[in-house]
Design a protein around this nucleic acid. Sequence first.
DNA 1: TATGAATGAGGTTTCATTCAT
DNA 2: AATGAATGAAACCTCATTCAT
Lengths: 223, 223, 223, 223
Amino acid sequence: MGIAERKEREKEARRGEILEAAEKVFFEKGLNQATMDEIAAEAELGKSTLYLYYRSKEDLYLAVMMRGSEVMFRLFMEATSTGEPTLKLIRNLGDAYYEFFKKHRNYFRMYYFFESPDLHTQVSDEMKAACFRNDEKIWGLVIGLIRKAIAEKVFRDDIDPQQTAVILWANANGLMRQMDRMEPYWRDAMKIDLDATLRRANTFVLQGMMTDKAKKQFAGLFE
Amino acid sequence: MGIAERKEREKEARRGEILEAAEKVFFEKGLNQATMDEIAAEAELGKSTLYLYYRSKEDLYLAVMMRGSEVMFRLFMEATSTGEPTLKLIRNLGDAYYEFFKKHRNYFRMYYFFESPDLHTQVSDEMKAACFRNDEKIWGLVIGLIRKAIAEKVFRDDIDPQQTAVILWANANGLMRQMDRMEPYWRDAMKIDLDATLRRANTFVLQGMMTDKAKKQFAGLFE
Amino acid sequence: MGIAERKEREKEARRGEILEAAEKVFFEKGLNQATMDEIAAEAELGKSTLYLYYRSKEDLYLAVMMRGSEVMFRLFMEATSTGEPTLKLIRNLGDAYYEFFKKHRNYFRMYYFFESPDLHTQVSDEMKAACFRNDEKIWGLVIGLIRKAIAEKVFRDDIDPQQTAVILWANANGLMRQMDRMEPYWRDAMKIDLDATLRRANTFVLQGMMTDKAKKQFAGLFE
Amino acid sequence: MGIAERKEREKEARRGEILEAAEKVFFEKGLNQATMDEIAAEAELGKSTLYLYYRSKEDLYLAVMMRGSEVMFRLFMEATSTGEPTLKLIRNLGDAYYEFFKKHRNYFRMYYFFESPDLHTQVSDEMKAACFRNDEKIWGLVIGLIRKAIAEKVFRDDIDPQQTAVILWANANGLMRQMDRMEPYWRDAMKIDLDATLRRANTFVLQGMMTDKAKKQFAGLFE
DNA sequence: TATGAATGAGGTTTCATTCAT
DNA sequence: AATGAATGAAACCTCATTCAT
C-alpha cells in the first residue's frame, strides 16, 4: 500500500521544488522576463518536466502567487484572533495587509498580473478555480468580520458587507499600488509619509462606515 | 513656405493613422496578443514603417494609452469648468473619472500595463518622459483643486494636497479595477450596485477630508 | 549504453540533413540569394531549428564548404597514394585539384566567400577554427610532399616548402578562378584550350622548382 | 549653348562627389558592411539621390573599382614606357602590379567582389560593359607586349599570347590574394619573404615562356 | 534634380510549448 | 516520469530600393 503513497509524496515534493525555483526566478525577473529555461535550470530539471507539473508558465506563476495568498491569509488570521473588539480587528486587518505589502513585496507585486485580465491567456481552468477558492477564503474572512461589526452596531446597518469589504480593500490596495511605484519619488521628492497616508485613508473610510455611537466609543482608535 | 509644413502635417497624419490602427488592434487583443504584423496590416503599411514612427510595440501601446490620457484630461477639464463650488468640482472629478471608466473602458484597461513596471522592457526614454508629462498634467489639475479647497476652508488645513489627491485617486481607481474584473459577478450574483458603491466610497473619503463647517454647508451634496 | 550514442548519432544525422538542404540551396542560389527560410523548407524543419545547429547563415555556408574541403582532401589523398615517384605525385596533385574544379564546381565556388574576409561578419569562432584546421590538413599534405621532393633532390634545396606550396596553389587557383569566370568566352571566342593552359602553367612552375638532374630524369613527364 | 554644358559639368561633378564618398565608405567597410545611408551621409546628399547617378549599390561599387583600374592602367603604362627591352618591360609589369597591390590595397581588394559571380545581382548592363571595356584595355596592353616578345623571339613562338597573359596574371594575382589574407601569418609565423616569393614565382613562369636564347641573354634579369 | 518616407525582404533571436523517446 | 530536441510565432533590426512630391 505504501508505494502509491510514496509516489504521491515524491510528486508533491517535486512540485514544491519547482515552485521554489519558479518563485526565485519570478521574484527576480517578473513574469515576462522570467523564462521557463531559467526556472528549469534553477530547479535542476529539464524544461519539459515543468510541464508535467504545471500546464503553463502562467499557471506556474499563479501557483507561486497562491503561496503569497496563503501568507496573507495567515497574517489575516493572526490579526483577527487577538480577542480585541471587532473594530480593532478590522483595523488590524488593514495593518496586516500593509505588513504583507512591506514584508512580502514580491508576492504583493504578483497580483499585478492577477489583476490584468489581458495577460491571462494560458491559465488553466483548474488554476483559475484554485485561485478563486483562495480569493473567496480571504474575502470570507473579511466579510464575516464586517457582518459582525454591523451586528454589533459598530458599522451602520445600511451598508452592504460585501460592498464595504471591497471599498476597504480597494482603498488600501489602490494606495499601496501607487506607493509601490512611487515610493522613492514620494518619500524623497514630495516628503509624503506613506504609513500616515495609508492610515489616514483607512480612517476616512472606516469612519464613513461607523455608527455615530461607535465613533464616540472608539474615538481613541483614530488618533 | 508651405512645403515643410505640409510634410510635417502629413507625418503627423501618418502617426495618427498608425495610432488609429494600433488602437483598434490593442483594444481587440490586448498588448500581448496583438502583433505588429496585425497592426501594420490594419494600417495598410509595412511593418518596418511602424518602427519608423514608434521604437517598439510597447512605445506604440503607450502612445495609444496617452490618447486615453487626453480624453481623460478633457473630461476632467470640463468637469471642473462649470463654475460650481470647489467641493462640487472635486465631486465632479470623481464622476468624470467614473465616466471615463464606463465610456472608455478600453483606455482604462491600458493603464494596467502602465502600472506594471515589470512589463516595460522596450519602452523608450522619450516615451517614458512623454507619459510622465501627461501624468503630471492630470495630477496638477487635481492637486490644484485640492489646494483651492484647502484655501477656501472646505478641506481641513492639516491634510497634504498631494497625499489627498493620491487617496482620492487610489480609492476610486482601486474600486474600478475591481469592478472591471468582477462586474458581471457583482452585479448578477451579489446584487451590488456599482455606481452606488463608488459614490459611497468617495463620500467616505471626501468627508474625512472636509472641515466641519463644510460638512454642514454641503450636506446636500452627499445624499 | 546505446541511448546516448543513438541520440548522438541522430543529432549528427540531423546536422547532415540540414547540411544537405543547405548545400542544395547554396548551390542553386549562392550565399546571398539563398535564404534561411528556403533552407529550412528544403530541410523540412523550422527555421529556428537551423539555428540550433548552426549559429548563422555564414556558419552554415562554411559547413557546406568544408564538405567540399573533405572531397578535395580525399582526391588529394588518392592522387598521392599511387606509389609513383614524388614528382609525379605532385603533378597528380595538380590534376586532382583540376578534377575538383571540374567535377565539384559548386564547392570550388564557395571558396570565393572564404577568401573574401569582408564578407565574414557572422562567422563563429568555432567555425573559423574548424575551417582553419581543415585548411591546415590540406596544406600539410602538400607541404609534406614538397619536403619529400626536396629531400629526394627532385626539387632544389634552396626553395622553401611552404613558399613553394603557395606558389603551386596560387598558380593553379588563380587560373581556375579566371577560367571559371571566362570559360565560355575563352573556349568559344578565343579558342584557348583550358586544360592545356593549366597544365602548361603548372609545368612552368614545377620546372622552376626542380633540380637540373630531376629535369633530365623526368623530362617525359612534361611532354 | 552654355547652359546645357554647365548642367552637364555639374552633373559630372556631382557624380564625382558621390564616388569620392562611396570610395571612402567602401574602403572602410567593404561592400557588405557599407550602407547607402552612410554613403549618402558622407556625400551630404539624400540616399535616393545616389540612385539618380548610380543604378545600384553594386554599380556604385564597381564605379569605385574602375577608378582603381585606371590607377592600375596608369602604373602599367608607366612601367612599359621606359624604352627598356621587352622582357624587362614584362618584368616591370609584374612589379607594377605588385606596387598596385602594396600601395592601393583598398582598390586591390575590391576585385574580390568582381571575381565572385554570385555577388553580382544588381549590376546594370551599362556598368558591366564599362567594366569589360576597362578590362580589355589592360589585357590589350599586356597581350600586346607578349606578342612583341614573341615576335622578338624572347618568348617561344609555340605559346599563345592570351594564354600566356592569363598565366602571368593568375600567377601573380593568386599569390597576392593569398598574401593579402595571410600576410601577418606568413611574415610572422612562417617567416616567408613575400616579395621574394612573388618574384620567384614570376621568374618560374617567365622562364618557362622564354626561348633558350633569351634565357641566356637575359640571365642577369633573374638573379 | 533632390529627397524624405515607405517598404519588403530576410537575418537573427527568444521562448513557450509540444513531441518522441 | 523525464527530457532533449523541435518548432512556430513574433519581436526586432537592417537595408537596398522605390515612390511621390
